[in-house]
Design a binder for these strands. Structure first.
Lengths: 242, 242
DNA sequence: CTAAGTTGTCTATGATACTAGACAACTTCA
DNA sequence: TGAAGTTGTCTAGTATCATAGACAACTTAG
């Protein structure tokens, strides 16, 4: 395999190799703690120069997915994030419970108005002013999901700025006096990542994603926030408890 | 957007643009015969140099998906291949009926032995000698599907060589005296393309594929050949008639 | 006919991707 | 201790990717 052989597909060789290895980790061919084949061996199986393999491994290591040990080998660091879907769902707690460090980052916060569907979910009138928050969440340095959240602009003014500062939805709600909240019905579907999310999630174009739509309520059942989240399917495993 | 901005994702910019446009065609945002936005406009929407857009369009044009007309614009040439699933299914006839030129190419022909499942489909005993033919089929210059076919090595000796010469399953069967054949039950599932098929189908890694398993029989109902085909989901549309 | 808008082609420049070979530094195992 | 195998680092060369600007060739609308 070389850039010429693949008819110049527009995908860098190192990315093909990295994706191949990541897939191997995702589907269990390489378990957490396992030693990967040597760089030379990987280079041979992909018919690629060793430096190209090193580029691929560096990309995976930079995300914390593998760890190289000089003189010994390269080892699998991470595994699929087990993500239980309960009534009480907090990203940071779930990630922390797996021994990984949660991160959040604001991508964009804009004003929006409620479509009929959003209004129904949030118990508002169609056209009501909303704040739309686009955010990404990571475990260690691996992007896990991108989510679009809508909140009432009346109840949560400047929500975007608050999220940018706190980097946490839970803290954002606390800032407005919401001490606790629960998740209502959750819809799970699957799809293919679009170009925008692909870059944000560091996913190859067209990879499968898990799409979760949910609305959070306060303890009296009043809707607070509705979300549309896209998870990298290969990095997460939803657990529905019965 | 530039190679630096995207943190060097390993996917060429022109490929992102080409994929975006192809997706636009696939999901109907640009219909067959439609004029695409001008190169400058595309360059602006993707925040990319016009030359990069031209590279993307050239890749699409080379596959026959779009056609550029100097001084006028670039037009959508192709549409999703309507692929009726009938008892009598012939790739070349289906493609020809859409006004496109069918092509077939042998990728590999090897000897194989029947697994229990293959044996049951073909009415043979487990371990019976088979010929396994890996082939790709195209409409004009666009790859449509990769299929793995198994035939009895006893009934169809040198089937690989015959297919390589005729480039058609129908003609292959004719060569062995089969004048007509019918398709039995067809199973349709979906999945994600693997790295090997991605290159063959010129698909981005992880794109969705339609997987079709079927067995062809002669007119007396004797199994002739069983197939496992992977179609590029975005280029084909199965029609099941009732 | 003219002007505006389109695709086609050319040159040029810098950054990145991939290959190739060599050697150092380190670990593991016999 | 020594040999084999591993990752880390360096230099070098070629090809591709992407940007930039300019102009030609052509079509369409007015």
């Amino acid at each position: 395999m070389s850039m010429q052989d693949t008819a110049s597909s527009g995908v860098a060789l190192w990315r093909l190799v990295a994706d191949g290895i990541e897939r191997g980790i995702a589907d269990g061919r390489f378990a957490a703690g396992d030693k990967l084949p040597g760089e030379m061996e990987i280079a041979e199986t992909y018919r690629v120069n060793r430096h190209t393999v090193r580029r691929a491994l560096a990309a995976l290591a930079e995300r914390g997915l593998v760890r190289a040990e000089r003189g010994s080998g390269t080892y699998v660091e991470a595994q699929k994030l087990a993500y239980p879907l309960r009534s009480r769902t907090r990203f940071s707690e779930i990630v922390g419970a797996e021994g990984r460090e949660p991160h959040g980052r604001l991508i964009e916060a804009t004003d929006d108005v409620a479509t009929r569907e959003l209004a129904r979910e949030l118990g508002l009138k169609t056209g009501a002013p909303l704040v739309r928050i686009e955010a990404i969440r990571l475990a260690d340095r691996t992007p896990i999901c991108v989510s679009t959240s809508w909140l009432s602009a009346v109840l949560f003014p400047d929500a975007g700025a608050v999220f940018a500062a706190t980097r946490s939805m839970t803290k954002l709600l606390e800032h407005y006096g919401v001490r606790d909240y629960r998740r209502g019905a959750t819809r799970i579907t699957a799809g293919i990542v679009d170009a925008t999310d692909a870059v944000r999630l560091d996913l190859a174009l067209g990879r499968p994603i898990l799409v979760v739509d949910a609305t959070d309520h306060d303890l009296e059942g009043k809707p607070l926030m509705t979300k549309h989240s896209r998870f990298a399917a290969e990095r997460v495993e939803f657990l529905v408890e019965s």
